[in-house]
Structures are given as structure tokens and as C-alpha cells.
Design a protein around this nucleic acid. Sequence first.
DNA 1: ACAGCCATGTAACTTGTTACATGATTTT
DNA 2: AAAATCATGTAACAAGTTACATGGCTGT
Lengths: 202, 202
Amino acid sequence: MSVRRSLLAILDQGPCYGYQLRTEFARRTGSRWPLNVGQIYNTLERLERDGLVRRGDADEHGHVYWRITEAGSADVAAWFSSPVVRTSAARDEVAVKLAVAATLPGVDARAAIAAQRSATLEQLAELRAQRPPESPAESAEDIAHALVLDALILAAEAEATWLDHVEERLSRHPQHAMSLGLAAERPKRGRPAKAPLPAIVS
Amino acid sequence: MSVRRSLLAILDQGPCYGYQLRTEFARRTGSRWPLNVGQIYNTLERLERDGLVRRGDADEHGHVYWRITEAGSADVAAWFSSPVVRTSAARDEVAVKLAVAATLPGVDARAAIAAQRSATLEQLAELRAQRPPESPAESAEDIAHALVLDALILAAEAEATWLDHVEERLSRHPQHAMSLGLAAERPKRGRPAKAPLPAIVS
DNA sequence: ACAGCCATGTAACTTGTTACATGATTTT
DNA sequence: AAAATCATGTAACAAGTTACATGGCTGT
């Protein structure tokens, strides 16, 4: 929902045409998350379908301006006033992947961790290299870009810390090596699993 | 791709029927990411469409077993041997949201940060409370669940740190308050933006 | 003339997600 | 008998993403 909501929030500042929204989004997020132009138009049509924006006529230059509706403004206000909830969904692919890898016999979880850590540390170095030197007078754009960069850096650092943590924990339990075979076949339809949790050494 | 890939990785251990995959996935991820049963069957059909699994006949209990193909095994091997790349996509909704909030005049970015921090800290407390006491003998399932829990805790901690960082940086620049109006209208079609970046005080 | 950007749009597709229907079996 | 769980499936949809077509304008 972040693209859709972001475009709507920008439109809340005043009417924009499609291509302009792309520029505005890029300015505010440091062009770090590329946005295919086609997606802008898709999203605008879906927002119109949902009654959150209205399409205007093309002006003299051929620009099609879109205007937010009251329902749209309410949606933006609600977005900004309420936190992003990470309840059920929001699966971290790396976490899911390593949890599965660590519990499957025959899968080299250590290797998967090592591969991920290499990639994460490399990306972390790249991100840190992009951090500009502290300057006393920063433009609004500079600050916004710095915020996004810091978010990425902190997330990568947290992931690296977690990977070390995972590896250490796996090292403390070398005997059963975290392997968890499939639960034994169930004798009858409807019977609960009652898995024997075979401890297979990888 | 994490659900699809996880189911495929489990199938790489041996044939399973749909409902069984749900149990296996839940066991390995601590039931922390609920998986609607219907999604299992959708995903299996899509995997079959892509030639990664083959559907078997129902056995005496009516269980429909699915078997991974060679292409499927290769996909699993490739998944585990290569890191998850967070290059272009992988937008963090909170980061996008606050970057946009911080650059839009009339939006109270401080309030948005405060709301997010409350939610994040609350969730962090809940997650920490769920951390079981260190026990010398942990089952494979226990360890997997701990890994997932730690991933969530570290991500929440990183987010909290980042939120503090953002707020502090915004406080250091109170004059223009990060506000960035829409770029001025472009005089002609095809002209670049050349935004004046108006410094609007919120 | 040509490359490249500006600008709008369409069509198809992916993964994830939910709601619903259906029925068997097990437990209470 | 009723409730809960096991089990398979279908239909629809959401958000994001890409590839493509089309044309105007600008700078070299």
C-alpha cells in the first residue's frame, strides 16, 4: 500500500498529472525505490475506481491533472495519524527462508546464512559509502534522502546482527543440527500430526 | 516469494498433501505468520503450472500428494544457495511513509513518528515477553521459533532506533521543517522540473 | 537526423490473501 | 447431537510490476 498511499498523499497537496507524480515520489524518496511509470497510471485508475481521486480534463499542454476527493483526503489523514501495523502479514523473506532452511534436513543452513551475510554486509558497505558528510545546511530533499538511507542502513545492520545470532545459536546445538523431517504420515484422515520430530544429523 | 518457495522447499523433503504443508510450514515458522489454507492449494496449482511440482492421485484416505520435480528441486537449491537480494523492490512501508510525510507541508511528521514509535515499542514489548527463558535442551522447533522471534525483535529495535534518529534530525532543522511543496508547474510539455523547492514552515 | 526524455496509456502477469462451499471424521 | 478439526477446492480480488505502443518535444 505504500505506493498507492504515497501518491495519494502527494495529490493531497494539490492536483498533479501522472508523470509529475513520478518525479515527486522520486524526489521524496531519493530515487531509491524505482517506480515504473506505468504503475502510476494503473494506480491512479484504481484510486479513481475507489473514489479517492477524480480525473480532470487535459490542459493546454495535454497534461491530465488528477484531483484528490474528500474521501481521499480522509484516507491520507488516517494513514498519517495511525501507525503501520505489522501484525499478521509482513513476512520477512530472509527470516522465513532461514527458519525453513534451519529445520530441513539436507539443507546447509550455515551456507545459506553465510551467503546472506555476504550479501547483507556488501550492501551495508555500499549504503554507508553513500552517506554524505555532515553538512550544516541541508535542503529538505537532502534530509529526506538521508532518512531513507538511514532506514536501509539500520535494517541491514539489524539483519547482520540477527544472522550472527542465528549462526551462534546453531553452533550451540550441533548434535541435532536443527533438522526436522516431515512429520510422520498420519494413519487416518482427521488424525492430528503427533510428529516424532526425527533428529536427523546433517 | 517466501510462501511459494517455502512450500516447495518442504516438498523437496518428500511428497506432501496440501493440508500437511500447512502444518509443516507452521511448525517451522512458529505459527507466527498465519497461512490461509486456501493459499496452499492456489500455490500448489501455480507450482504445477510452472512445472515445479506434479500432482499425484489421491491415496486411500483421500489425501492428494504432491511431488516435487527436478526443476523444482533445482529451484529450491538455487534459493538456498543464493542470498535474498534487496535491490530495487522491498519498499519498507514505514520508511516510505515517513519520507513522504516529512517532505509534505501540512503533514505533522512528528505526530506520525510518535504514533509509529508507540506501536513499535508496544509490539517490541510483546515480542520480548514472548521470549522463553534460556533452556539447555531445546528442540529443533524451539530453536526455529526463537530465530523467528529474534528476527522480529531485532527489526523492531532497528525501527525504534531509526525513529529516534529521524526525530532528532528533524529537530535539528526546525526552520524549514522539512516541508517540500509540489514542484512549480512546468511551463511547457517536455521541460524538466527545476523545482524551486519552497521552504514552507509547517 | 537521431537519441533521449516527457507523457499517457494498455494488457498481462505475479504473489499474496480472503471468503466461501463442501464434506468427512473426531471429540465433547 | 453439536462443535471442532481435517481436508480439498473455487472464485475473486489487491497491490505491485513489467513490457509494450504511441507520440511530442528537445538537444546535439
